[in-house]
């Protein structure tokens, strides 16, 4: 991705990249509200201080989002388990993808299957498919070898296929 021109509006940039940032943030947070807080903090920090660094702004922003999510998790660590369970229950009902005109059942099945993936596989899948990062960039983000990122991606796709096949059989 090219560098951001000085005169580009943050709104244009956010309109284009906001959905994928929010989706990634949701992989690292417990609720939609937390994910929005994380995206807000990371985006403002990026826009003010990091966008002039050059290089790959999208990769930098994902790092910022992940770090903000980690900080938030640390701040929230003292919250009670009961509160956490209550929030988790509500958030399961929140769709993470736009609802298509048709095939909503399929979207719902995919979301359910995604939630069922191990977190380390899901975050790689989300960063690759919707974050459009390379395995090299994902490896840098997650501090894992690129081969591990590629393996987790393949395992995630295989697990999704299995889960969706099971859903098709039962649906």
């Amino acid at each position: 991705m090219e560098d951001i021109p000085d005169d580009e509006s943050w709104r244009d940039w956010f309109q284009h990249y906001g959905p994928k940032l929010l989706l990634c943030a949701r992989q690292w947070t417990r609720s939609l509200a937390d994910a929005e807080d994380v995206v807000q903090e990371a985006f403002v920090r990026f826009w003010r201080h990091q966008r002039k660094l050059g290089g790959e702004p999208q990769a930098l922003l994902f790092t910022s989002v992940r770090r903000a999510a980690t900080d938030l998790a640390r701040r929230n660590a003292r919250r009670s388990a009961r509160e956490e369970r209550a929030e988790g229950g509500r958030e399961l009902l929140e769709p993470v993808f736009e609802i298509p005109q048709e095939g909503d059942d399929r979207r719902s099945d995919i979301e359910t299957a995604l939630r069922g993936l191990p977190p380390e596989q899901r975050e790689v899948l989300v960063l690759k498919i919707w974050g459009e990062l390379t395995f090299e960039q994902i490896a840098t983000q997650l501090r894992i070898p690129p081969n591990t990122a590629a393996s987790r991606y393949r395992y995630a796709l295989a697990a999704l296929r299995e889960a969706l096949s099971a859903a098709d059989c039962h649906g």
Partner: peptide
């Protein structure tokens, strides 16, 4: 399956979030 996943569009950020960033 990969191609199908790529066709799914993540939900848009809420207006409240955009306003808060603004």
């Amino acid at each position: 399956l990969e191609a199908e996943l790529k066709r799914l569009r993540p939900v848009l950020p809420s207006r409240e979030l955009t306003a808060a960033i603004g």
